[in-house]
Each structure stands twice: as C-alpha cells, then as structure tokens.
C-alpha cells in the first residue's frame, strides 16, 4: 500500500510517503508560516523527490484533529479532495494519537497535548501494550490542564507528557502527579507524518464526502446557541438552492 500522509493541525507541517511499513520520504518543518501556501508545493516536491505521482498512491492519510481550526481544515480539505478526485482511500488519525505514537518504548501512560489557550489543552491518554500496540485509554478531549492533571492523578502509574507545548504545562501536571510525570525527550515532541502514515494504514477507510475534522469543540456561537435552544437542533443547515 502506497500512502501519502499529511499533518497541518498545529504549527508543524509534516508530510510523508510510505510503502507499507517502509517510510520512503518525509518533510517536516516547525516554523510559523502559512500551511495553505506551503502544503501543496511540499506534497508536489516530496512526491517528485521520491519518484512517485499522485495516481500511484493507494491511500491518503490526514491528521484529523484536534488542533488549529484553520490548520485542520487546510489538511483535511486537501486530503479529502485529493482522495475523492483520484479515487483513493482516505483515512483520518487523531493528531494526538500521532503525537503519542512518538513515545515508542515506554510502558508509561502517554499524555499528548496541544495548548488550547486560557489554560485549556487538547489532550488524551494513550499507552503501548505488551505487544507494542498503541492503545487509546481515554477519549481525546478539550479540557483545562488543571482538571486533566487532577483526573489523571487518580490513576496509578507513570505519565509522560508529549508535544511542543509540554514545557508550558509541566508545572501544572507536577502539582498533581509529582514525580510520577515527566516530559518526553525533545526529539519526540514534533508530530511526524511518517508515524501518521503508519497509524493510518491500520484505520478503516472513511466516507470521503462526509469526512470532517475532529475539532473537539463547537464554534463559540454554536455552543451558545445550543445552550439557549436545547431542543431545536436540525439535521440540515445547508441546502442546495
């Protein structure tokens, strides 16, 4: 299976080409620059570099969130349009799972996280099992770092935090988990599309048309409206005219 994988869910932009379990090429940057301008040229350049063309791919894998709303939409729109128009399979992988998978070799609980501002984080809980398979222990969520740390403190065991924003929240977790929590080594903090591509081969193919990012959070206006109108949600808000 030939796979093109892409992750634009946060500041890092990573794309990779894989053939089954073998990584053929990968391009990762971690700079504050626009994903919309850079994603398509990067895909073009990487595929050319590894002598592949989009027609030869079997599957497109995309990091489906959580993360920056705009970043997610750039990746998901590009991935779903490519998959649909080329008639390829599309698979989505949690952006947090992709990050957690970096922590290979540890049996500790893995806590991937992205800053979601105002003390909140996007996070989840993962663990490699005895067979070396990454297992999801808790659903990905949007929560205050403090609440998450407090919740995790009720579990027994060691925790490793992973992600570019770990530094910012390590203290908060320390307050609840003390020496039971550590930060992952620096080389594991960046999401890698090669890892994403490996995970994405194990996922079921998605329905391309209806595939959308996992924002894990409603738009603020939507959230307020639903609170004020608890029983009025309709099925179809978009209509052909």
């Amino acid at each position: 299976m030939k796979v093109l994988a892409m992750d634009t869910s946060n500041q890092a932009m990573s794309i990779a080409v894989l053939e089954n379990k073998r990584v053929i090429g990968e391009w990762t940057t971690n700079i504050k620059r626009n994903h919309s301008e850079r994603l398509m040229p990067a895909i073009d350049a990487l595929l050319k570099e590894v002598n592949e063309s989009p027609e030869q791919l079997d599957r497109i894998v995309v990091a489906k969130g959580p993360g920056s709303y705009t970043g997610l939409r750039i990746g998901v729109t590009t991935a779903k349009t490519l998959a649909w128009t080329l008639g390829k399979e599309l698979a989505g992988v949690s952006s947090l799972e992709t990050l957690a998978a970096n922590c290979v070799g540890t049996r500790a609980f893995i806590v991937p996280l992205f800053d979601a501002r105002r003390g909140n984080i996007y996070t989840g809980l993962y663990q490699y099992d005895e067979q070396g398979q990454l297992q999801q222990i808790e659903e990905d969520t949007h929560i205050s770092a403090e609440q998450w740390a407090e919740y995790l403190s009720r579990k027994e065991g060691q925790f490793v935090l992973v992600g570019e924003d770990v530094e910012q929240y390590l203290e908060t977790f320390r307050q609840y988990l003390q020496e039971r929590v550590t930060a992952a080594p620096s080389q594991q903090h960046l999401p890698r599309a090669s890892v994403l591509g490996l995970l994405g081969q194990e996922k079921a193919a998605e329905d391309v048309h209806t595939f959308i990012p996992d924002y894990l959070k409603l738009a603020e206006a939507e959230e307020n409206w639903r609170k004020a109108h608890p029983n009025e949600l309709e099925d179809a808000y978009v209509e052909k005219i």
Binding site: R73, T81, T210, Y215, A219, A221, Y237, V238
Partner: peptide
C-alpha cells in the same frame, strides 16, 4: 461556522 460548513460540502 461558515468554514466548517464549507468542509462538509466541498467535494
């Protein structure tokens, strides 16, 4: 919300 709807519809 407009952006979210566009992703749902585009393809």
């Amino acid at each position: 919300i407009a952006s979210r709807h566009h992703v749902e519809q585009v393809t």
